[in-house]
């Protein structure tokens, strides 16, 4: 078979129009008549770049230069004869393979984010050493104290009563051996809020106590939710999930660049909110179970949520995608459903 190709001799930007012959015996003969060039090589001596779509085929002529020829069925057949350089392109242009990918890509992505990443996160959280958790908690509390939190203005005696009652509650439950230290802080920026650090340090803001009218039943319900995060190692799981999601989105879709970043950023947020919401549900249900163990009414949890919901703007269905916590309405319904 005889065709024309572009020959770029090594060591320059020269381009010559060449006549190329592919022989049945597997030899390639390249001639440029005006320049008296004639190169003959066997197929094993050629470095043939894999076929890709309909781009021209590039062939490195063992140190003598580059040959570029059009991708035609005949040429591809000859070039792919031994080294299987057409294999990937055949898969990529196979109609049933494309259809299969169209179905499997969304399915696998769903399974990957829904089951594999959370599963991996649970394993990861079990391998995080105790001291790392301790350092993480101490450093976090330290930086929060320096920035967002101030000393509590709640009466010291009252603080002690809350702490004693909390320890009393804890002693009635079977929990991991974390030390659930209760702390109080004042903060304008955080408002009515409570959070637990992964080592069991629980922080409640003064504004939250005011919001629940210093009702201890409601406080217990909220604290149980917070330690639900600690018991199930939620911080570590969220860390692993965030890391794995960012890497996966970057490596699956990162090649395309540009406005994709807005799109990828948005999907990243939505996926991570789903993870976070799942953890909140776990903590809610943990708190509700413990309330029942203690012989307390799950209603106190529902009431605490209602008080919090009153401070927030009304939620729409769209918020389920855009926020890290499940919809308040659903959380309250879930608590009432326990009775």
């Amino acid at each position: 078979m005889k065709i024309q190709g572009q020959f770029y001799p090594e060591g320059g930007s020269q381009c010559l129009l060449a006549e190329v012959t592919f022989s049945q015996s597997g030899a390639l003969l390249l001639t440029v008549t005006e320049q008296n060039i004639s190169i003959q090589l066997s197929r094993d001596e050629l470095q043939i770049k894999d076929k890709l779509g309909s781009i021209p085929r590039e062939i490195m002529l063992s140190g003598q230069g580059l040959l570029s020829v059009d991708s035609t069925p005949e040429t591809d057949l000859w070039l792919g004869a031994e080294k299987k350089s057409n294999r990937l392109a055949n898969i990529e242009s196979n109609r049933s393979m494309v259809l299969l990918s169209l179905i499997l890509v969304p399915a696998f992505l769903y399974a990957f984010f829904k089951y594999m990443i959370p599963g991996f996160a649970v394993h990861f959280s079990e391998y995080v050493p105790e001291y790392a958790v301790k350092i993480a908690s101490e450093h976090t509390l330290y930086s929060l104290d320096k920035t967002l939190l101030n000393e509590s203005e709640v009466d010291a005696q009252l603080q002690q009563t809350y702490k004693d009652n909390w320890q009393d509650t804890l002693s009635q439950l079977t929990l991991n051996d974390a030390h659930y230290n209760l702390n109080f802080r004042e903060s304008d920026k955080m408002g009515a809020n409570a959070f637990a650090l992964p080592d069991g340090t629980v922080v409640v803001t003064d504004a939250l106590l005011t919001l629940i009218d210093n009702n201890e039943d409601l406080l217990q319900a909220i604290l149980l939710h917070e330690i639900g995060h600690v018991e199930n190692k939620h911080s570590m799981r969220l860390i692993a999930e965030t890391l794995a999601t960012s890497l996966a989105i970057d490596y699956f879709f990162g090649d395309l660049g540009g406005m994709i970043e807005v799109f990828a950023g948005l999907s990243n947020t939505i996926v991570q909110n789903q993870f976070s919401q799942k953890l909140e549900w776990e903590a809610d249900n943990f708190a509700l179970e413990q309330l029942q163990t203690l012989g307390l009414d799950p209603e106190s949890f529902a009431k605490a949520m209602e008080k919090l919901a009153a401070t927030l703007p009304q939620e729409s269905k769209l918020d389920a995608l855009m926020q890290s916590h499940p919809l308040m309405k659903e959380r309250i319904e879930n608590a009432r459903g326990r009775k």
């Binding site: 393979m97 494309v98 990918s101 499997l104 696998f108 699956f252």
Partner: peptide, 9 residues
Amino acid sequence: FSIWIVNLL
């Protein structure tokens, strides 16, 4: 598109 989707899979 077909190259991309197969490679993504």
